[in-house]
Design a protein around this nucleic acid. Structure first.
Length: 256
DNA sequence: AACTAGCACAACCGCCGATAT
DNA sequence: CATATCGGCGGTTGTGCTAGT
């Protein structure tokens, strides 16, 4: 069966997000949470498709994201997990608090892969390319084929997967506002009270998958987001986005 | 100073599985 | 059961930046 595009191609903006768009998305999600991504752009006054909003949020705007280079232990963990799981980036990312699958995938393709090749390890099989053991190879020679998901799952449940060092986890929790300049200013503009109320950050020991939105969301009562859909017919202009392009040019954002 | 190549990473595309109708 | 829709995932691309020449 033919799938329809996730959104109308016409009138949907693509390319890099402007600060204005980021702000709108953050404000909307902090206020309402995200129920159905498809409805988010319309309700937030964004000329984007829901998929794009979700990606932007999960990969860049989420408050629990840790930014910057991977620590040594994180990198080793990625290598180890890749040896077990292969290119299942989302699974790998789930084991690294504050990191996204996209980030890890990028890091793998740009840094780690080359690093492994440099020391003679095949990044696909995690075996020495010359069939000689090397110190790192001995840590990472367990291939994806040799371990089942169930085994891994049980390991996860039993907490046997090595976790990152406390330093990085602490960094993550203290990084709620993100130290990345372009993003941090967006968070600073939001009420700290609102942020504190909405997000509970785990302690350094906790898994970030347990991060929860604690604020009362509009659909909490009903367990439904139908009210959102009632607003779908609102024009984008109703939310004041007609000046997006103006903002963009004022911010010096390139128009692609 | 100008040009080029390589790097880093944000974002897009297309597919898949789950769920709803 | 068939089809439609959605969220999520992994692969790939595009663009800005930086280092090297």
């Amino acid at each position: 069966m033919g799938r329809r595009p996730c959104c109308d191609k016409l009138g949907v903006k693509k390319g890099p997000w402007s600060a204005e768009e980021d702000k709108k998305l953050i404000n909307f999600i902090l206020t309402n949470g995200h129920c159905c991504w498809r409805a988010v752009p319309k309700l937030a006054g964004l000329l984007r498709c829901g998929k794009s909003c979700r990606l932007r949020w999960t990969n860049y705007l989420r408050p629990d994201l840790k930014r910057g280079l991977l620590s040594e232990s994180e990198e080793q963990l990625v290598i180890d997990l890749h040896a077990r799981l292969g290119n299942r980036w989302s699974k790998i990312a789930a084991m690294l608090p504050g990191r996204t699958d996209n980030e890890i995938k990028n890091l793998w393709n740009t840094h780690i892969k080359k690093k492994l090749l440099k020391i003679g390890i095949d990044p696909v099989t995690h075996k020495p390319m010359d069939q000689q053991e090397s110190p790192i190879a001995s840590q990472s020679t367990v291939t994806a084929e040799s371990r089942s998901d169930d085994q891994l799952q049980s390991q996860e449940n039993e907490g046997q997967i090595p976790s990152c060092d406390n330093t990085s986890a602490t960094e993550a929790s203290s990084n709620a506002g993100s130290t990345d300049p372009p993003i941090s200013h967006l968070w600073e503009e939001n009420s700290p009270v609102l942020l504190d109320e909405l997000w509970q950050f785990p302690s350094s020991e906790d898994d970030y998958s347990s991060v929860v939105i604690t604020g009362q969301m509009p659909w909490d009562d009903e367990g439904s987001c139908e009210w959102l859909l009632d607003y779908q017919d609102f024009g984008v202009g109703d939310f004041g986005s007609e000046n997006l392009d103006g903002e963009r040019s004022r911010n010096g954002m390139p128009s692609r």
